[in-house]
């Protein structure tokens, strides 16, 4: 057991998989000799050498295209797109090529790869380096989409993603890179498609993802101590496949559901989950389904402005309290 940062967990997860399987290769901008702009891949180049850990030109289409071609023909590439906002310049691969080749070829082609990326706000980088783009990915049939919130989940879900035979989008939250958590020694392997109940509770279910998970947990603690409301907090972790059973099971018990989403409001992942809840658990509910999101605006750069629009602990506490106690 050791305490590890989320950032170091990324490198450890990649190293674990590269050690296990020589077909795992890693490419991206500034990822090799420089160890990545977020220093999440430090040491991999030294450990695995220039053939397996490769710096690329600033060519996001080439990065994802090359990962796809390599995956189709027998490698298990991990490709890094530095900021998830840059998905927009290589979206053809994310939306049209990688997820559809298996279906279009009637199962002839495969595409086992992982696209890692720095996602989310909190770095005061403004509207083009701070977005939460999980909904850009979730809407595409053929992709799997994962967003861990803790170091141990980074390693376990990254390992699961690398071993998965389908393409996986792996969203690392930039504001979590410096956070720490206990991580056991030895191999760590988790399972895609599994949500985690991080705090059991009986009065309301709060579902959250990535950076919103620690905020939801803190809000739950305050709701309990300040308002006597006992919340169950679920880390969704995997948007596709989606563990609806854990979520629906929790709501059957608590009869209330709140989502905490960093993405702008329209078409956020919570909207999809809430529609499932409305459809399949309507008679379990004792109150409205409430989405706590960033408003539908681009992200501002200034710290006080950015802090004001992301869902905060205060906002979560207030919305849950108001909904349950009026």
């Amino acid at each position: 057991m050791a305490e590890l940062t989320y950032r170091d967990a990324v490198a450890r997860g990649i190293a674990q998989e590269m050690t296990r399987d020589p077909d795992v290769v890693f490419l991206g901008e500034d990822v090799a000799k420089a160890g990545g702009v977020f220093k999440a891949t430090v040491g991999l180049y030294e450990q695995f050498g220039p053939l397996r850990v490769r710096d690329t030109p600033i060519s996001e289409q080439a990065i994802l295209g090359a990962a796809m071609g390599a995956a189709m023909t027998g490698l298990k590439p991990i490709a890094e797109i530095m900021f998830s906002d840059f998905f927009a310049v290589c979206f053809d691969y994310i939306a049209n090529e990688i997820p559809k080749s298996r279906y279009m070829s009637n199962g002839q082609l495969k595409c086992p790869l992982v696209i890692r990326t720095g996602n989310g706000a909190g770095s005061r980088f403004g509207a083009q380096h701070s977005q939460s783009v999980e909904n850009w990915c979730m809407m595409i049939p053929g992709l799997k989409v994962v967003a861990p919130s803790s170091p141990i989940d980074v390693i376990g879900l990254l390992a699961a993603a690398v071993r998965d035979p389908d393409p996986v989008i792996f969203l690392e939250h930039k504001s979590l890179y410096a956070t720490k958590g206990e991580v056991p020694d030895g191999e760590i392997l988790d399972k895609l498609g599994t949500a985690k109940i991080l705090r059991p509770g009986k009065d309301a279910t709060i579902i959250a993802l990535a950076l919103m998970v620690p905020r939801a947990l803190e809000a739950a603690n305050r709701l309990a101590s300040e308002h006597g409301i006992d919340c169950e907090v679920i880390d969704v972790r995997s948007l596709v496949p989606l563990d609806t059973q854990t979520i629906l099971g929790s709501i059957a018990k608590t009869h209330h559901c709140f989502s905490v989403e960093e993405n702008p409001r329209l078409c956020g992942w919570g909207a999809e989950i809430m529609s499932i809840v409305a459809d399949e658990a309507f008679y379990d509910l004792d109150g409205p389904l409430v989405r706590i999101t960033t408003p539908h605006i681009p992200l501002p750069a200034a710290d006080i402005l950015e802090d004001a629009i992301l869902p905060t602990v205060d906002r979560i506490v207030e919305r849950v309290r108001r909904t349950l106690k009026g």
């Binding site: 295209g65 090359a66 071609g69 490698l75 590439p77 691969y93």
Partner: peptide, 12 residues
Amino acid sequence: AHLPIACGAAWR
């Protein structure tokens, strides 16, 4: 689209 993908196959 397929020019980068061809690069990947050749990389393999």
